[in-house]
Structure formats: structure tokens, C-alpha cells
Design a protein around this nucleic acid. Structure first.
Lengths: 142, 142
DNA sequence: GTGGGTGCAAAGACTTTGCAAGACG
DNA sequence: CGTCTTGCAAAGTCTTTGCACCCAC
């Protein structure tokens, strides 16, 4: 956690991002959670911690952090955009019922036949997502 | 193509969906294209072919077809939802610049270690998506 | 015939933008 | 101190919903 903050400071600086309390708070919140929150959820948590923070700032901060490679979007198939501060390749499980997003450690990268990517295309990242029904929903459906 | 329409009729019937000209048109349009259109793009094409078709109907049709398992959503990381009538597992390449979506035939399923899925979770489908810059954008950036 | 489907208009959810004031480096 | 960032409000984009009419089965 501490080291991630340090790395954050450095990466942010490299990307030309000023280190504001808002940005630090958003990033800290994101690495402290495993539920892959969207802008609204981050706002709900942070408005108690950072006085006067606005939803707009959350959105803008997430966009900046994404551009700087400090956070990634999670492909949920749903309307709302969710974010993840784990930027190393890993997988996600998305519940089609409640929308919860879980981390998975499926290592798909090593098995991937990247030879199938057509010439002229440049792959920057890959994402494996499984969709289904999560434990919570499975048990409450009974 | 013809066989897909036949299978469509049957699956639609099984799902309790009435076979309206609008639904058939949406499905036909979707299987005839490889660019994974969203509701708006489908509407633009179809309003010339089906007199008086509405955007609302496109949205509702896509929702019905998705529920019936006849089309799937493509996880693009972007705002707009795109659809694909190829429901068998395959992969996609999403261009981060222009938003175009391409099909890929990476066969990741057989290599996937599904053992890593936690107990109580039920996987219904998986999706592998590569994000990057497509051929078009790569060449126009020069 | 009748229950689901359609079209229109309006509402809704999420996200972005313009602008003036403020803060980081 | 200048430039990037913030907060507020308003606008924008995509999608869903209510309601009356219509059509496939």
C-alpha cells in the first residue's frame, strides 16, 4: 500500500499530473477496495473524507489516472464504468444479476496465441472476463 | 445466412418471442455486418429498409434477443453498447482510438484454467478482448 | 380475440463541458 | 506567478419507460 502510493507519486509526476489531495484520495480509495467501484461509489465514500470534493472531479481524476496508466477500466457489459487500480493483467468475474465485479487470477496471457492478431494491429492490453452468477446471488435465489 | 435465419425463427419461438418484421430485420442486419454495431447504427441502416421503425424498438429488440441468447454484447470499455450475432465464443479487438471492433479467432477457452473460479460462482460465458490501435488508425497517424 | 410488440414522447442514468475561482510546483 | 485543477451548473449522450394503438399467433 505504502509503496503503491510512492509509485503513484512518481508515475503521476511523470505523466505531468499535479498531486492534489483529490487525486491522491481517489487513488487511495481505489487501491483499498476490491469491488471495482465506479465514479458514483467513489464519490459516496470520498465526500465524507475530502471536504467539498465533487463528482466532476472524480470523473476527471479517473480519466487522468487512466491516461497515466495508473488505473484501468473493467469491461462489465453494463452501462456504468468501473475502475480497477490493479493494472497488471488479471481477470474479472462479472455477475450478470447484481453487477458485482470480482478479481480472478486466471493466467490467460501465457496461453494466448497472439500470433492470431492481424498485421498492422497494435495490442496494448488484453482482458479476460467471465460473466455469470456470483455466489451471493446464487444463494439468495434459493 | 439462410440457416441462421431458420435457427433464429426456432430460437425466437422457443424464447416466446413473436416474429415481427422489426425483430427479423434487426437480426438480419446484425448477422450481415462484422462491425458490431450499436443501437444507433442499426437504426440508421434499418430506417431505410423498414418503414417507420423506431430507435426504441431497436433497443427493445436487442434486449429481447440478448435474453434469448441470439446476440451478445461486446465489451468495448466505451459508453455505447455494441452487439454481435456470433454467439459462439470468440475474441474481439477494440481500437482505443476510433472505437472500431474487430473479430479475432483466438481460441482461449481450451486453455483457460477454469479451476480458478471460486466455488459458488457459475460462469455462463467468457470474453477475451484485446485493446489497442487498429490498422486504420495506425496508418492514418503517420 | 388477446397478449405481447411498436412508436412516440418524455424521463432517466451516467458522463462531459464551460467558466470563474483556487492551488500545486 | 502561471498553468493545471477544481466545483458548480448546465448540457450531452445513450438508454429506458409510460401509454395508446396495433399485429402475430
Amino acid at each position: 500500500m505504502e509503496e503503491r502510493i510512492l509509485s503513484f507519486r512518481e508515475k503521476a509526476r511523470k505523466a505531468g499530473l499535479k498531486l492534489t489531495p483529490q487525486r491522491l484520495a481517489v487513488y487511495k480509495e481505489l487501491i483499498s477496495r476490491t469491488d471495482h467501484p465506479g465514479a458514483e461509489e467513489l464519490y459516496e465514500s470520498l465526500k465524507e473524507k475530502i471536504e467539498g470534493i465533487s463528482l466532476t472531479t472524480i470523473y476527471r481524476t479517473l480519466a487522468s489516472l487512466e491516461r497515466a496508466g495508473l488505473v484501468i477500466r473493467v469491461p462489465t457489459l453494463r452501462d456504468k464504468v468501473r475502475y480497477d487500480a490493479r493494472t497488471e493483467p488479471h481477470s474479472h468475474f462479472v455477475c450478470l444479476e447484481c453487477g458485482r465485479v470480482y478479481d480472478m487470477d486466471c493466467d490467460f496471457k501465457e496461453n494466448l496465441k497472439l500470433s492470431e492478431i492481424p498485421e498492422g494491429f497494435e495490442v496494448k492490453s488484453c482482458s479476460l472476463v467471465c460473466y455469470g452468477i456470483c455466489k451471493e446471488c446464487n444463494s439468495s435465489n434459493k
